[in-house]
Amino acid sequence: MKLTKYTHSCVRLENEGKTLVLDPGGFSEVEKALDGSDYIFITHVHPDHFDSERVIAFLKENPEVPLYAPQAVIDEVSKELPEAKVQLADAKETIELEGFTLKTYGGQHALIHPLVPTIDNVGVLVNDNVFHPGDSFTVPHGIQAKTLLAPIHAPWNKMSEVIDFVISVRAPQVYPIHDSLLADNGRNLIETQVTNLTADYGVTYAHLDPEESVEL
């Protein structure tokens, strides 16, 4: 399976001739990520994970492509494009697609502040390999992910929580997501600490630049 990281939390996965795009948000190269895609999965409705204008424009041009997401995303898409192929993605589900098996976890966005209402967020494990938590520190239960996409910086997290999350998931390979608000100095600091402090737990952390690909 081929993984391509785009800016922030958008990831493109290719397997057996099929393409799945996760979280094509407003900070990402949405058109490039979605080009030729067969499926879209969105973890939650926040615009840095779901660029509604560009995703809906893509779905208008590609009406055969299904979108899987929590209800708030489905409501927004259906309002603008009633004929879109949308399917609710709740936690603790298994979704079988050609080339991909999706298992969902969690259900709630991490707390930003007590004054900010929480929303639905669904983490997704793809092919028992790649875990994208969206905006949460949900640890998938009943299975150990092989590859973790770790949100290394956000208004709702701090570095110690990122490190504890990476250790808890215990995936052998970790790549960063949710990093577009970081300047280079801040990114280097966080990545160095995550690399050094999780290595004793069997974790290998590796940086990916936007549009860089790896084979899993």
Rank of each mutant, 00 (worst) to 15 (best):
A145N: 02
S28I: 03
H46Q: 08
L148S: 04
G107Q: 05
S37F: 01
E16K: 13
Q87R: 15
D23P: 03
G36V: 03
N188S: 11
I112F: 07
K5H: 10
G26E: 03
S52Q: 15
Q193A: 14
R54M: 07
K60F: 05
Y175A: 07
L13P: 05
T94R: 13
L216I: 11
G186M: 11
A183T: 12
F137G: 03
F27W: 13
T192H: 14
Y201D: 08
A57R: 11
S168L: 10
V194D: 02
N15S: 06
I190K: 09
H207Q: 14
V126F: 04
S78Q: 09
E191Q: 08
N121F: 14
L181E: 06
H113A: 13
Q144L: 06
P63A: 14
V169D: 01
A154H: 15
T147K: 08
W156Q: 07
H141W: 10
T19F: 05
S28C: 08
R54K: 12
Y205G: 00
F50E: 03
T43W: 05
H141A: 08
K146E: 13
P66L: 01
H178I: 06
E211G: 12
Q71C: 08
L3R: 01
K79E: 15
L181H: 09
T19V: 09
D38P: 01
E76H: 11
S37M: 01
S168M: 13
T104N: 05
A72S: 09
A69G: 14
A33V: 04
P133I: 00
E29D: 11
D23R: 01
V30E: 00
A199Q: 10
K158V: 12
V73R: 00
N121P: 12
N129A: 08
L22R: 04
K18D: 03
P70R: 13
E80N: 15
I42K: 06
L208M: 15
P114I: 09
D200G: 08
A91Y: 11
K103H: 12
D38A: 01
E64Y: 10
T204H: 13
L3Q: 04
P82M: 00
V73E: 03
I177M: 03
V30Y: 03
F137H: 11
V214F: 01
V124H: 00
W156R: 00
P172V: 02
S9K: 02
C10A: 08
E31F: 07
L102W: 06
E64P: 07
D135Y: 04
L34P: 00
L81V: 06
V126K: 00
I143R: 07
G134E: 07
H141K: 12
K5L: 15
S160K: 13
Y175S: 01
Q108N: 06
Y105R: 03
I167K: 11
F41M: 04
A183V: 15
V11I: 13
E93F: 06
P140Q: 05
P210W: 09
G106M: 04
E53P: 07
N121C: 15
I119Q: 10
I95T: 02
C10T: 06
S180N: 09
Y201H: 05
A89P: 06
A69Y: 05
D23F: 02
Y105D: 00
S28Q: 06
L197R: 01
N185M: 14
E93P: 01
I119N: 09
V174K: 02
